[in-house]
Amino acid sequence: MQRIAGWWDGFELWVAGLPFIPQFLVVLVGMVPISFAIAFLLDRTLRMAFRVLRRDDRAEVPVPVALAERPTVGSGVR
């Protein structure tokens, strides 16, 4: 663990010592793929959890009778 922490500290110091534009590009190149991967994994995990809980968006939601029988106004709005 000490080796990883030492490598990470060295990497942080290297990035912090860069001028702004290269620093921005290094962070961007590293963070965009990591952010997409985290978002993808969260999406898949939550989709599976909702499917297991039977709360997925493909489930058919019944329309309440009170809304189905309301008359429309002249513009067609209920």
Rank of each mutant, 00 (worst) to 15 (best):
M1R: 05
M1E: 12
Q2N: 13
Q2G: 11
I4Q: 13
A5T: 10
G6N: 15
W7M: 08
W8Q: 10
W8I: 10
D9W: 02
D9C: 10
D9Q: 04
G10F: 01
F11V: 06
E12K: 10
E12S: 06
L13Y: 00
L13G: 09
L13R: 12
W14V: 08
W14G: 15
V15K: 05
A16E: 07
L18N: 13
Q23T: 04
Q23R: 15
Q23D: 06
Q23P: 02
F24M: 15
F24P: 01
L25I: 08
V26S: 09
V26N: 02
V27I: 10
V27E: 09
L28D: 03
L28E: 07
V29F: 15
M31G: 10
M31I: 02
M31V: 12
V32L: 13
V32W: 06
V32F: 12
P33W: 04
I34W: 08
S35C: 02
S35Q: 05
A37D: 08
A37V: 03
I38N: 06
I38W: 03
A39V: 02
A39D: 05
F40I: 10
L41I: 13
L41S: 15
L42R: 07
D43S: 14
D43F: 11
R44P: 00
T45G: 13
T45K: 14
R47S: 11
R51D: 07
V52N: 04
L53N: 10
R54H: 11
R54N: 05
R54V: 00
R55D: 00
R55N: 03
D56L: 01
D56V: 00
D57N: 09
A59P: 00
E60W: 00
V61Q: 12
V61T: 09
P62S: 03
V63I: 14
V63M: 11
V65G: 06
A66Y: 05
A68E: 09
E69K: 11
E69F: 04
R70C: 05
P71K: 06
P71G: 06
V73G: 14
G74I: 01
S75M: 14
S75V: 04
S75A: 11
G76L: 01
V77F: 11
R78D: 08
R78F: 11
